[in-house]
Amino acid sequence: MARPLVADIDLDALRHNYALARELAGESQALAVIKADAYGHGAVACARALESLPQGKRPPAFAVACLEEAETLRRGGIESPVVLLEGIFEADELSRVEALGLWVAVHSEWQVQALLAYRPAEPIPVWLKVDSGMHRLGFSPEHAPAVWERLAAATEQVAGLQLMSHFATADAVNSSYFSRQLACMQALSRRLGAALCLSNSPATLAWPDSHGAWVRPGVMLYGSDPLEQPSEVSRRLRPVMTLRSEIIAVRDLAVGEPVGYAGRWRAPRPSRIAVVACGYGDGYDRHAVDGTPVLVAGQRTGLAGKVSMDMLTVDITDIPEADIGTEVVLWGRSRHGAVLSVDEVARYCDTISYTLLTGILPRVPRCYSRLD
């Protein structure tokens, strides 16, 4: 019998979440961001599920971080346009960009020079990245117009020129900094007559004034709520990944008996402890504290003791029916119908859902199915 830990991927939930993004986008087009192996869900499988939607409901393009991720999609048979959000890392990558039919972001002068020196058979769609306040990648708003004019004039190399930027505080309930970034980009768009792509997941969910010509939902596609405070809209998201395992052993402990490395957790009463096949060697966060929620037979209980490499332990004292083989859900949807949000688990680990989802390691099988 195989080790019981699996990551169930509900592709219907993925399609539902993308449909919500399209609904919120209104007249804007919605990229589907599937970088980092679709946030740990499997980029090719997720792209196929979205690309198979009916015409008019499927993504007009996907977005990834780098050429290698785009090549994986093309090898997997994905034919839709793919945007390289970080552009090229070396000038000689442009030949692969052209061969694969990719769209490319430019955020640095050397990338502009490499592109203008290249001679493609057909112009390459380009997205000019502006640093409106995130202070990572992009040209300053003052410098961007001159770069835009150079790219717009290079009709042999450049097609479909767009403006893009990234919000630093779109998840906040109230943010003057968000408003400042938005005003900067809207002014630049008016000046240049340029189409805008600004809205990440939280802006797609909560800031319709920012949607522009394109939105680019990412983590929301996978059912994680990126907002500082959940909204009526964000509560409509459905979890795509369920990290599911089983109890593999049960221990009865007397009051005061310790569990796990360093004996961090001690039984406050006569206790039943379940050993679960899942650990940090699978990508479950080692920083999870005692009481981090899990679902056992669809009922909430908590972690008891430090996470080990291949196992973790939970308190099942109040779940008498739990025994070897009982389902344990680390996050996602239980077969009993209960749901445990990955966002809630992340808070107990002092992190965000992105790190949990992208951290699930290859030894955990991904099972693609519709969950009943």
Rank of each mutant, 00 (worst) to 15 (best):
L295M: 08
D310K: 15
P59H: 01
D171M: 12
L24M: 02
E71K: 13
G42A: 11
E23K: 08
R216A: 12
V329Y: 00
E79F: 04
A99I: 12
V364T: 09
P59V: 01
A144H: 11
Y261A: 15
R180N: 14
A274K: 02
S245G: 13
L137E: 10
G263A: 07
A183Y: 02
S334T: 12
M311E: 11
E149N: 11
V130W: 09
V158D: 00
L24V: 07
L11H: 04
V345Y: 05
R191L: 14
A47R: 00
E93L: 03
A121V: 15
A159I: 03
W127I: 14
G279D: 01
R136V: 07
Y354P: 00
G26K: 05
S210C: 10
R48P: 14
T169N: 07
V259Q: 02
V33I: 11
G302T: 11
A121K: 15
A267M: 01
R180V: 13
L5C: 03
A63T: 08
R269V: 12
R180T: 13
W103Q: 08
R244C: 14
A170Q: 10
A288M: 05
S199G: 05
G193H: 08
G283E: 11
S179A: 13
Y39D: 02
Y118T: 07
L237K: 01
V345K: 02
V339Y: 09
S231T: 15
W214A: 00
D315R: 00
M134A: 14
F178V: 00
V106A: 03
C66K: 13
I352C: 07
D350W: 11
P230Y: 04
R48I: 09
L361T: 13
L188T: 03
I319Q: 00
V215K: 02
A172V: 10
A183L: 09
L100P: 01
E109W: 15
R272H: 07
C349K: 04
L115Y: 03
V250W: 02
L312E: 03
G138D: 01
G337M: 06
W331L: 02
V64I: 06
T242Y: 03
L161N: 00
